[in-house]
Design a binder for these strands. Sequence first.
DNA 1: TCTCTATATGCTCAATCTGAGCATAACGAT
DNA 2: ATCGTTATGCTCAGATTGAGCATATAGAGA
Lengths: 304, 304
Amino acid sequence: MNETAHCRTELVAVVLGLDTIAAKEPQLCVLTTGEGDGFPSGPLQAGQASLQRSLRHWVENLTGFRLGHTEQLYTFADAEDDFGNRAVRISYMALARSSAEMASWQSVYAYFPWEDRRSDDAQAFLIPLVRHMKSWVADNERRLTRCSVAFGLDGHEWNDELVLDRYELLWEAGLLPEAGSREESEAPLFTGCLGRAMKHDHRRILATALSRIRAKIRYTPAVFDFLPEYFTLLQLQQAMETLAGRRMHKQNFRRLVQHQSLVEETDLFDPSGQGRPARLYRFCEASSQNCYLAGAKLPLPPLV
Amino acid sequence: MNETAHCRTELVAVVLGLDTIAAKEPQLCVLTTGEGDGFPSGPLQAGQASLQRSLRHWVENLTGFRLGHTEQLYTFADAEDDFGNRAVRISYMALARSSAEMASWQSVYAYFPWEDRRSDDAQAFLIPLVRHMKSWVADNERRLTRCSVAFGLDGHEWNDELVLDRYELLWEAGLLPEAGSREESEAPLFTGCLGRAMKHDHRRILATALSRIRAKIRYTPAVFDFLPEYFTLLQLQQAMETLAGRRMHKQNFRRLVQHQSLVEETDLFDPSGQGRPARLYRFCEASSQNCYLAGAKLPLPPLV
DNA sequence: TCTCTATATGCTCAATCTGAGCATAACGAT
DNA sequence: ATCGTTATGCTCAGATTGAGCATATAGAGA
């Protein structure tokens, strides 16, 4: 009972990127394996390999993708199996610069349809979920507070960064198939609302990654890791919008960015658009310490 | 080379608390073992114990302290030893409510004297370090930027949350004894400036914890975990100041707190002070989602 | 060429937030 | 009663934010 457990240590990578090529609006993508139900992962190798090096090895082996800078997300432990073995899973997040390959990646918001509030569709996904949550809440005071805060009800504002809280509430309410036994009877009620499931706890890891990147882009220049060297302010704004899952006010967003001299004007223009060509800018590393990029929000419609 | 490594999994706890009893000003304390050179830690146990449960077990066994809510910090891997064994260390942070016992804990700022900028002493600790860092920077452009941002030089502002960055810079510059071979010759130059060392990477873990808690108190009501049920606004402010390591503007701080209705007035007063008795307040959980507690800063003197 | 549409970009204005400091209130000590 | 000390209330200018109007510059079509 009190003896030391030796465990298999597994490394998992969530590689995020923006697919700016396919559609008019960028898509948030993630590198998956199999049928899009898992992330590249593998055991920590012997030899002098570090955690990061092992991770790099597995991602490259399984997908051919070469990891750049990574950030640790969270470490989970499985329950023991029948042989007394257990796995410790260390998850990492990496950001990938836009490229054509991403079209073959999976859309992040396919796993969390309610998190993409750029269009009004999200509202349609969310409403049936919230209705179900209300019955789960019943008279439980604690549950009510958690739901109000997480889903922006009862006068609370929608908070982009509470991705994990929302996921966990849906899990606890038994709405997610990963949560185990749930009759299929309710399925038709939620067609398309619940998003795609993943194996093990990978969808939870993705929720953690989305929370983290949304928090990160507000106070660090992390968005620029997704963008090419030269970009228009609209591209920058749309990258923020895609990550944050909500719209921003155009003129105010430019003011915010330019005021902090986060970007540097160039003499180049992007002639591909329909209207007046947009000036191309470049990230300005020099003054990027006190970066603040959110705040130019557009109000969201209240949830019913 | 490519075979799976089975590792020992170790859990480490950084338990922080505020010692409000001893001195007039609260002290940030941490629960340590031995001579204050390590944190309570132990291997993940077999059985159905979860990570958190194992952690709890070790902390209670080694120190008698009962953990409350914990938050995962970071997972490190040691290099392999001669037998091909290695350890994975998962670190956690916990917050403890003020109590008399804390007087026997260790002061966090004894490990990072330069991080406590409430008094001007920190300046005295920091200046020799910065002087040494400048020679380490030499003409290296990258190092210069990192130092300027981390230490608030060249027009950059001091950022409380960059504890880990500062620690790592000092490490890389070879100023810290944990970093390995360093002649004692320079020691007298830095008497008392470098802070206490710890075994393994425990001091790095403490730096991670301090970074995390400083970031956390700004946007969450985490400070209240340190305070008793009833407190004065000065106590709340001093708790923030102790954690953030800097002074705040009193009147503006109250305005900030009261405007967000984060706290609730009571009819009680604290008669223990010298002047007019301060009203006691209580944490108001209801409206704590969009909490913002920093910002009422006082300017810091420029470094030289 | 002229017009229309679409996008980029500049500018204003009110409401709010922040940093700083002055003024008053209420206690104990002398 | 007076003074030192801390709590608390209030003001004011400057900066930031949310919202929207106005103008500039492109391609497409009449």
